[in-house]
Amino acid sequence: MAVVVVLALLAAGAWLLIIKPHRDMVAQDASGRPSAPAASSSTAAKAAVAAPPANVAAMDVNQLLSEARRAMNEQRYLAPASNNAFEFYLGALQKQPGNSVAVDALRETFPFAANSAESAINARDFNEAQRQIDLLAKADPANYTLTILRSKLDAQRKLLDKEQQQALDQQHQQQLAAQRSAEEKAAAERLAEQQRSSAAAAQQAEAQRTEQARLAQQRQQQQAQQAAAAVVASNTQGASSNTDAILIRMVQPRYPTQARRANQEGWVDVQYTVDAEGNVSNAHVVASQPRHIFEREATDAVERWKFKPATRDGTPVASTRQQRIQFQLNAQ
Rank of each mutant, 00 (worst) to 15 (best):
R291P: 06
A318K: 14
Q130P: 01
D24L: 02
Y89H: 11
V5N: 15
I325H: 09
F112V: 00
A228R: 12
V6N: 12
Q94W: 03
R70Q: 08
Q289T: 14
Q222K: 09
L90E: 09
P21D: 04
K138S: 12
V61A: 00
A102N: 06
F294D: 07
V3Q: 14
L9T: 08
A48W: 02
A310S: 15
N127F: 08
D300W: 05
F307C: 04
N263G: 14
P97T: 03
S281K: 13
N143F: 02
Y89E: 00
S288D: 03
V302H: 03
N55W: 04
L176F: 05
A318Q: 10
A51T: 14
A259Y: 05
R76S: 01
Q218C: 02
L160G: 08
A51C: 12
A114R: 00
A182E: 14
A14Q: 14
W305D: 14
N127I: 07
A120L: 15
A188H: 00
T299E: 07
A68M: 07
A298K: 01
V61N: 05
F110H: 10
Q96D: 15
G32Q: 01
R131I: 01
K185L: 06
A301C: 07
N279T: 10
V251Q: 09
Q195Y: 00
E128R: 13
E277I: 01
Q332S: 10
V286T: 02
Q220Y: 03
Q264L: 13
G238T: 10
K158N: 13
R190D: 06
A102C: 01
S119H: 14
M250D: 10
Q194D: 07
A50H: 12
N235C: 08
G91N: 06
Q75V: 04
T320V: 08
Q328S: 10
E265S: 04
R219I: 03
A230V: 05
R190C: 05
V56W: 03
K185H: 03
I18K: 06
Q28V: 00
A51I: 07
G278A: 03
V232E: 14
D269L: 09
